[in-house]
């Protein structure tokens, strides 16, 4: 399955680094005259990275699959149990809840994140003083430790926290944002968007910066409405950046862990429990490393599937030629 996504990934690699004008197809070597390859030298240069890559990425990935076939405690010896972990997983109601929560989180978070990021980065292209400074401001929470960020949100959103006392001054009785299952996931999403949409502001700003001024000027002269300008000129021109941010934001969204862990502990009930939080707890709190690995593999497959779908869909709307 992973292989089927490959052309797409390469396509995105151009979106990843627009600065690399040279396409990543043929790579000339300085020692072009030689007939033989540079096998031994290459080995020397690749050895550190490749050893680590195999040891810390490939082996664990396969290892994860192997571990998922065992009942594997933190202390003591593992027992082979075949697919029992997977059987248990598909009969575990929490698994479905957690999967659903994570999918809802991922889609809502990605949509709101991109909409806001696009809005702000468009705003930053208008006539503004210190536009660079504002861009950095929106970026701030993205590089401060998420644990610290989540803590202040927990304080502000708690039952007698700032938000509710502010609402109180307007005579509105605020909800228990973190304890009410109707609002808890929303609170987690809000905090997460605040935390990280600044990244996408910067990526999209770079994309917007790449649009030739003349094109926009010309469209203004034509009397095109702002909406049409956005719809037919700007969006298609930044579609590679949009696609890239969408893909990466979505992958990031499936990894959500700190926010529910600090804000709600996954509660109330399971309403904010996410895939990675459940995985972490099964492995390192409930002492079921095998079950956690089965979860990890499902996560892997889900993320790959969604990424593959995004790549499949990109042909419809992403425009790579400038």
């Amino acid at each position: 399955m992973a292989i089927s996504t490959s052309p797409g990934v390469i396509a995105s690699s151009e979106a990843v680094a627009p600065a690399a004008d040279q396409p990543a197809v043929r790579i000339p070597t300085p020692a072009g005259k030689k007939k033989k390859g540079d096998g031994l030298t290459a080995l020397a240069y690749l050895a550190p990275g490749f050893t680590g890559f195999v040891f810390f990425i490939v082996v664990p990935l396969i290892g994860s699959l192997v571990i998922s076939l065992f009942e594997w405690p933190l202390f003591g010896s593992p027992t082979f149990i075949g697919f029992a972990n997977y059987e248990k997983l598909f009969g575990d109601p929490t698994f479905y809840t957690v999967l659903l929560n994570t999918v809802i989180f991922a889609f809502v978070y990605t949509a709101v994140n991109l909409a806001l990021a696009l809005g702000v980065s468009l705003w930053l292209t208008t006539k503004l003083k210190f536009s660079g400074f504002w861009r950095v401001i929106f970026f701030l929470p993205a590089i401060t430790p998420m644990v610290a960020n989540a803590l202040i949100w927990r304080l502000m959103l708690s039952q007698d926290g700032l938000l509710n006392s502010l609402l109180g001054t307007f005579g509105i009785e605020g909800a228990s944002w973190l304890s009410d299952s109707r609002f808890a996931l929303l609170a987690v999403i809000t905090m997460s968007v605040w935390q990280s949409f600044g990244y996408n502001v910067i990526v999209l700003s770079a994309g917007l910066g790449g649009i030739p001024k003349e094109i926009l000027e010309a469209s203004r002269v034509d009397g095109t409405s702002a909406w049409n300008r956005l719809r037919f000129i700007i969006l298609p021109m930044i579609s590679p950046s949009l696609f890239f941010t969408m893909t990466m934001t979505m992958i990031g969204a499936f990894q959500v862990f700190v926010q529910p862990q600090i804000l709600t502990q996954g509660g109330p009930g399971e309403s904010t429990n996410t895939f990675v939080l459940y995985l972490y707890r099964n492995g390192f709190v409930f002492d079921k490393l095998g079950y956690a690995s089965a979860l990890a593999w499902i996560l892997f497959i889900v993320v790959m599937l969604i990424t593959a779908l995004q790549f499949a869909g990109q042909k419809k709307w992403v425009n790579y030629d400038k």
Binding site: I57, V59, L61, F254, Q255, V276, L279, L289, S293, V303
Partner: peptide, 12 residues
């Protein structure tokens, strides 16, 4: 595109 979280159990 591999989430790091997939690897934490075997890495641990």
């Amino acid at each position: 595109v591999l989430p790091q979280e997939v690897l934490v159990v075997p890495l641990f």
